[in-house]
Amino acid sequence: MELLECTLAIDDLDSFVADLGAIGETHGTTLQAFDARYVAGPRHLERAVELADRSIERGENVARDRAVEILLYAAGRRQIDRALEMGVGEGENRAVVLADGGDEAAALEDVRKLAAFAGTASTLEAPDGETLQEFFEIPDRERAVTGATLGALVRERVALLEVEK
């Protein structure tokens, strides 16, 4: 798995998603773009990929597309429409693009060539704690009674998706 932290300026979301799909097909790579505000770091996405792959291997996946299954696990939700909130949208986005499998480096190089690519940026360095707590439904009270980091609590929510099936 490789990650590209960047800024995206997306005029047409459907066209951008189609471009990611075409790049992925060319390089045998799964690509998924996330709004960086909802990502608790690289380990969050690594865990989502692991669990999505396990779900696919067992035939328990909800989505037909691996990229969407990864999005579901990253969001800790089984409903695609609710998980899409974690994806990028039209306009300017602080983003992270995940590439997994195939020629990841070449795929991310092609992502850099897209019109929507506005430049590299450190988007995972300082997670948005308030957004993460709200999106993953982690109350202040829970954070106060545990020594776990916010990232660990988010990864727990991702793992709980397996239990809640």
Rank of each mutant, 00 (worst) to 15 (best):
M1V: 09
L8R: 07
D14N: 13
S15R: 13
S15Y: 04
F16D: 10
V17F: 09
V17T: 09
A18R: 14
D19S: 14
L20G: 11
A22K: 14
G28T: 03
T29N: 09
T30W: 02
T30A: 09
L31G: 06
F34G: 02
R37V: 01
R37N: 13
R37I: 00
Y38A: 07
A40W: 10
P42Q: 09
R43G: 13
L45Q: 11
L45S: 12
E46R: 13
E46G: 10
R47E: 15
R47A: 05
A48Q: 06
A48T: 03
E50I: 00
E50Y: 05
L51F: 13
L51K: 08
D53N: 13
S55L: 01
S55M: 01
S55Q: 10
E57H: 01
E60Q: 11
A63H: 08
R64Q: 08
Y73M: 01
A75N: 10
L84D: 11
E85W: 01
G87W: 04
V88M: 09
V88C: 06
E90S: 08
E92Y: 03
E92I: 05
A95W: 03
A95K: 11
V97Q: 06
V97D: 06
D100T: 14
G101V: 02
G101Q: 08
G101N: 09
G102A: 06
A107F: 06
L108F: 11
D110A: 12
D110M: 07
D110W: 03
V111W: 05
R112V: 00
K113H: 12
A116G: 12
F117Q: 07
F117A: 01
F117L: 02
T120N: 05
T120Y: 01
E125Q: 10
E125K: 06
D128C: 03
G129K: 08
L132Y: 09
Q133R: 15
F135A: 08
F136Q: 08
F136Y: 15
F136P: 10
E137V: 06
E137A: 13
P139E: 13
D140V: 02
D140M: 00
D140T: 05
R141T: 13
R141P: 01
E142A: 12
A144V: 00
V145M: 09
T146P: 08
T146L: 11
G147S: 14
G147F: 07
A148N: 14
T149C: 04
V154T: 04
R155G: 03
E156H: 13
V158S: 04
A159S: 14
A159V: 04
L161E: 11
